[in-house]
Design a protein around this nucleic acid. Structure first.
Lengths: 327, 327
DNA sequence: GTGAAAGCGCTAACAG
DNA sequence: CTGTTAGCGCTTTCAC
């Protein structure tokens, strides 16, 4: 019974104002059929009790909007931040709400995701939904940038770079590139994309093999770049745009001309790539399209139009090669 | 009675599986005290009915987490995107959920905000919460970048640039700046920050008055910059970092040296400013601190430790001058 | 203009 | 191991 012990309910307000719950409801929701005086009295009582209607009680009877939970690793990474923004935008037309959760610094990401799963109507994750969570429980679960084989555990929106990478290979070949070099981020296993890049560019490398070097995300770039240039590299393929932009800056500080001395290619297609000079050539993914496809897949799952797992729960969004000044 | 007419409830599943609601609940929540066979039977029935537990029914009895609604104008603006990310991060430690809504393209932003208000425990807005919505209903409402005078309608987290602007004035004076020029974005009324900048720098301008020019966000920069330089401007103060970065690129294309020929200052402190070269000197706001202050204010309001309106509902986060290479 | 009754879907506590 | 009972807080009928 202590003041903060229990949140006030509609009944507390009704008692205090000396009216029925109905009347309180009418007052709180600006509904007609209530005298101004009564309304005032009710609102005062509500204020005095710090009463806030429970969104659960309300949702129960009103059928709230579909809520989509988005789980990402690290929102300070602008790629994920843009994804979150894109998803929110894609949810809006359908009247859906999106709950955004970052689990990168959580002790147990899986637990955090499972907890969120209980609070939403569908779960979308990017690189963070392990095996535990799946469409088993009847809830749509979608993995972004998942592999086709993962459809047994839920929906998958695949980001397919193959065509764009092939196009890039052609582009670099025509440009006379003979010693491309892939720069991956250290930590974690070799990512798919760098591997695919190296494989696709093999045919145009003098040595018949494209080296993959690992670099820190934010430091030590100068030494690596000096070594790379000394090795004769004439095209650098960065893991993502953020790394590419950092490399670009370091190259400029070193007095190296891009693309004159060395070509530079990023990946992701973040806005930042078009704000630097020279503008970044990049393997670009249309993040808004990814978001739209995801929402449409989830919607189909909710309506029963798409299965929760299997081939029918699979969408593909291709990368595009965005040729700009840097390569 | 059509298949999609009504979502299956726990009762439907119970009937189909020939068990009680409780048993269904136990099966769905992986609780102990249920035989493997029964669980399997229940889960199958649930799957057949596309049953998903209602988060409202659940929340009603379980007391869901605090939910904070964040309303922003335009998530494709990286400033708002970073804010959204920061808020999500600030909510995490308290176990709160954040619902992110963009209202820029909505016919009626106020309606969208009001609708969200019914679904969350507290509402935070950046430049989008008009007069209608206020702390009246007992719900914490916080305006980011609000003015102190707006505390009569809810909480305010003020972003205070005065000290940093004064510091910038000193810095530019020492650097010998004599003709600063403020570049605001066209559209909308003159923003506070450009006005404050112009006022603070007046004393160091030869003419005793700092001009404020308006430019498009993304186009026509070259003409404006040529005119600016022709007018003798030796320091450009951009409305925000994004504009500053675009100006920087155009200046480089024009062969103008920054900061040699002209100094350039941005505002906001987005990551992008530190990725270009020269790195951007900027009036920087610690967006994570803004988010933390906001969450802490909302938390206090929910607990009754802070009033919903008035002086007690006011927090201030100062800008910092981030001196880097561009000025 | 106001109140009473009914029910939204779920889970905790207890009984069997 | 399973079922029964009793709410959670709210809004929508329908009476008065």
């Amino acid at each position: 019974m202590s003041p903060a012990a229990r949140r006030a309910t509609i009944i507390d307000v009704a008692e205090r104002a000396g009216v029925s719950r109905q009347t309180v409801s009418r007052a709180m929701n600006d509904q007609p059929g209530i005298s101004a005086a009564t309304r005032e009295r009710v609102l005062r009582a509500a204020r005095e009790l710090s009463y806030r209607p429970s969104r659960f009680g309300r949702g129960l009877v009103e059928q709230g909007p579909v809520t989509l939970g988005l789980v990402v690793l690290d929102l300070s990474n602008s790629y994920y931040a843009e994804l979150g923004a894109a998803m929110a935008r894609a949810c809006a037309p359908a009247g859906w709400n999106m709950v955004l959760v970052e689990v990168g610094n959580t002790p147990d990401p899986e637990v955090a995701a499972a907890e969120l799963a209980r609070r939403v109507d569908s779960l979308v994750g990017y690189g963070v939904l392990g095996g535990e969570i799946s469409g088993d429980v009847g809830m749509p679960v979608v993995r972004l940038d998942g592999r086709p084989s993962e459809t047994d555990r839920g929906g998958v929106v695949e980001l397919a770079p193959a065509a764009a990478i092939a196009e890039l290979a052609d582009h670099l070949r025509e440009a006379g590139t003979r010693r491309p070099l892939v720069l991956d981020l250290v930590g974690g296993p070799l990512a798919d994309r760098p591997l695919a890049l190296a494989a696709a560019l093999r045919s145009l490398h003098e040595d018949g093999e494209v080296p993959i070097w690992e670099v820190e995300a934010r430091t030590g770039h100068r030494a690596v770049l000096e070594e790379a240039l000394a090795s004769g590299a004439d095209a650098l393929l960065a893991f993502n745009d953020e790394l590419a932009v950092r490399l670009l800056r370091t190259l400029r500080e070193m007095g190296v001309d891009v693309p004159g001395d060395v070509r530079l290619v990023g990946a992701d297609g973040l806005e930042i790539g078009s704000l630097v000079s020279p503008e970044l050539t990049t393997l670009s993914i249309d993040i808004d399209e990814v978001a739209r496809q995801t929402v449409s897949l989830v919607a189909a799952m909710l309506e029963g139009g798409a299965p929760l797992t299997g081939d029918g729960a699979h969408r593909v969004v291709p990368y595009r090669l965005e040729v700009r000044a840097s390569a």
